[in-house]
Amino acid sequence: MGESILKLKNVNKIFETDAGEVQVLKNINMTIDKGELIGVFGKSGSGKSTLMNMITGIDRPTDGEVWINSEPIHKYGESKMAVWRGSNVGIVFQFFQLLPMLTVLENIILPMDFCNKYSKKDRRERALLMLKKLEVEEQAHKYPTALSGGQQQRVAIARALANEPSIIVADEPTGNLDSKTSKVIFNVFKQQAKEGKTVIIVTHDNSLKDEFTKNYVISDGQIIN
């Protein structure tokens, strides 16, 4: 058993809708260790994205607890959570979600600016290093719209890694890419896990199941496997 980094205890999530209450997560318990490469599978509407929201602190459980690095993030408000997340969790979105008004380099510097984690000079150097590591350093001064989907996703990963978070959460990171680029991107995540990061990936692609150290399958808001 490795050192556990993330714990979900009896997490339930209920949404209030005009049609009544909808329970999206039902009594979820989960423990993830440092350096694991986790796959989260499930059909559309199964609750996997809500589960990711719990892990990233984007949403809070109706009841239950979420502990990351021994911190009770279920107790944090939106604004405090934002700062905490910036330093501790790197998020990679399906549609990359780079900010269009910033260059590639500036997109990577932004979370460091937000969290004041490195000196101003170091932020720039570090961002360039990230880009080099992800083999997109030549795109540093371009705007995101000038990049291909694969390149944008690499930049998004670089941004997620900017503040050296211990956890990376990726929601369908290859869902919008061709199979060749998907493979490249997936390898980047694998490499991150090898380097000690905890990587949690939501995916539909069952062929990747064997690549993960642990898989969770969600159905109707419950972990069934």
């Binding site: 990233t56 984007i58 939106e78 604004s79 405090k80 934002a82 700062v83 997340r85 910036g86 330093s87 998020i91 979105f93 979600q97 900010l99 269009p100 932004l110 979370p111 937000f114 969290c115 941004r159 997620a160 900017a162 503040n163």
Partner: peptide, 16 residues
């Protein structure tokens, strides 16, 4: 709003 959400998700608090 979505961009602001992204900024929140990468560390931007209300003050910023």
């Amino acid at each position: 709003a979505k961009e602001l959400g992204i900024m929140r998700s990468i560390g931007g608090d209300n003050k910023r």
